[in-house]
Design a protein around this nucleic acid. Structure first.
Lengths: 146, 146
DNA sequence: CTTAAAAAAGCAACAATGTTGCAAAAAGCC
DNA sequence: GGCTTTTTGCAACATTGTTGCTTTTTTAAG
């Protein structure tokens, strides 16, 4: 049963890669499947632990970079100097990101979530400043930990 | 003339340190004066460059950590893996931070500013989530670069 | 001003994280 | 299958951050 779910994620990963005109390789399938399995955002370290020597560290860095470049994942800023990555939703697609959603970091489980349903608010800036991207990170307790 | 301004910042730094019951040392005065001089937020690297071997790298790390612990400065999350620090305003004070303001990163000069007058908006979270701290980072073009 | 206790700085060594160049291997394509 | 392009693995290196310990500086008290 669980085997079937995993196989499905592998299948799904392969389709996503092809759809984005990326070569289908073991590491990319593995990392993408990890993203699909994961509810929250993940870091390079998370992948390295999970992969456990199946791939070179450098490969993981490069794969993540490729995914970011192609708009498959986006980065989430954190205060503790560890870049986290999360899968982009369909509406991100090629080129620009439309990640209007906010990010949530749980103080207890330390997981990072994309709250896709919560839209970033309009920010009124002082005269002279023009806004591009707005990033909102909320820290608190998630629904599983409360 | 400029000499006087600099001397004044040194003086001011010393007062802040004493007010926070911290020993007055060269490195602390230097780093605090740098914060006072700077409009935006600064990183460990910025200080290291500015200090140019006057202090050990470790001392800078520890000084920054002390300042954060004592509530003199706060950290700002960024997407590019470099922790940035900014001076806290008076209302932060001892213990908890009240940095309700948002942060602004200029795409052109890459400086980070605290927009003290812009208050973080209320965020309506999905059922089950409870919010603690809310961090808003806006990227765009600052008033000096437009 | 001198001095003893406390705090901070400097040094060295280490750990973690991220980057680059290049040769070998795998994927894509006819 | 064979050829071209892309990706991987490896090694070496750069940057960033941490820890333990000794020396120096600061503080506070006489």
């Amino acid at each position: 049963m669980k085997q079937a779910v995993k196989a499905n994620r592998e299948q799904q990963s392969e389709e996503i890669l092809k759809h984005n005109k990326l070569s289908v390789t073991d590491s990319r399938k593995f990392i993408l499947a990890f993203f699909l399995q994961q509810k929250g955002a993940i870091s390079h370290g998370d992948i390295e632990k999970k992969a456990a020597d199946r791939f070179d560290r450098v490969t993981i860095y490069r794969t993540l970079q490729t995914f970011v470049d192609r708009g498959l994942v986006h980065t989430i800023p954190t205060a503790d100097n560890s870049i986290r990555y999360a899968l982009c939703k369909d509406d991100c697609g090629k080129g620009e990101h439309h990640d209007h959603h906010i990010h949530f970091i749980c103080d207890k489980c330390r997981q990072t979530f994309c709250l896709d349903d919560v839209v970033t608010p309009e920010i009124r800036l002082p005269r002279g400043y023009s806004a591009g991207h707005v990033e909102v990170v909320v820290e608190g307790v998630c629904k599983d930990c409360r």
